[in-house]
Simulated assay, not measured.
Amino acid sequence: MSPGQIAALIAAGAFVLLVLLLAIPLLKLGRTLDEATIAIRKAHENSDPLFDQANSTLTHVNTQLERVDGITANARAVTGNVSALTSLFTATLGGPLVKAAALSYGVSKAVRRRRRAAAEKAERTSRRRGGRR
């Protein structure tokens, strides 16, 4: 064997060793890709029921929102009716009630003044009588 052949054998051995060392990670990578493919397939199979449940939930939420819209519309109508009733009450009874309150205040004030004046007059009369005796 010549030194060139020995060098060729060493180079061939090194090449085989390099191929073996690179084949192990490639085989592991292939298994990893197979596992990832299986996991993706299972996730895809399990996603259909999840999407079905999400769709039914959204349908239920939309139904509830339609009910809330109806309630809101009714509340808006009630608010409008109360506003109209308040305006009607103010226009119809507000002025007369204010006038009646002012009249009753004025009458009570006048009665108090009259009573006070009568009391003062009675007190002056009693003082005069008391001074003469």
Rank of each mutant, 00 (worst) to 15 (best):
A73N: 10
N46D: 14
R129V: 04
L85C: 02
A54L: 15
I71E: 01
K99I: 07
P96Y: 01
L50V: 14
V78L: 02
P25F: 00
L65W: 01
N74W: 01
L22Y: 02
A43L: 14
F15S: 14
R128S: 08
R133I: 06
T37R: 10
Q64M: 12
N81S: 13
T92F: 02
L20K: 04
D69Q: 04
A12R: 09
E66I: 00
N62D: 12
A117E: 05
F51A: 08
I10N: 11
N81K: 14
R113K: 12
E123F: 05
L22P: 00
L33Q: 12
D52S: 08
N74E: 13
R127P: 15
N62W: 01
S56G: 01
A122Q: 08
G13T: 10
S104M: 14
T79K: 09
L33A: 14
H60K: 11
V98E: 11
D52I: 10
R76F: 08
D69C: 01
R112M: 04
I40P: 00
S87N: 08
Q53W: 05
R129C: 02
I24R: 09
I6G: 00
A7N: 09
R112K: 15
G70Y: 00
T125C: 02
F51Y: 10
A119S: 03
A101G: 01
A119R: 06
S2V: 03
K28N: 12
T90G: 01
R113D: 07
P3C: 01
T72W: 04
I38N: 12
T90Y: 00
H44M: 07
L18R: 06
T59W: 05
L85H: 07
T32A: 15
V16A: 11
S56Q: 13
E120K: 07
L17D: 09
K99Q: 11
R113G: 15
L9H: 06
L65H: 03
A102I: 10
N55T: 10
L29A: 15
P25G: 07
L50Y: 10
V16E: 13
K121N: 08
R67T: 06
N81V: 05
M1A: 08
S56P: 00
R67N: 11
A12N: 09
K28A: 15
S87W: 06
A75V: 02
T63M: 00
V98K: 08
V111N: 08
A73Q: 10
R112H: 07
L21C: 08
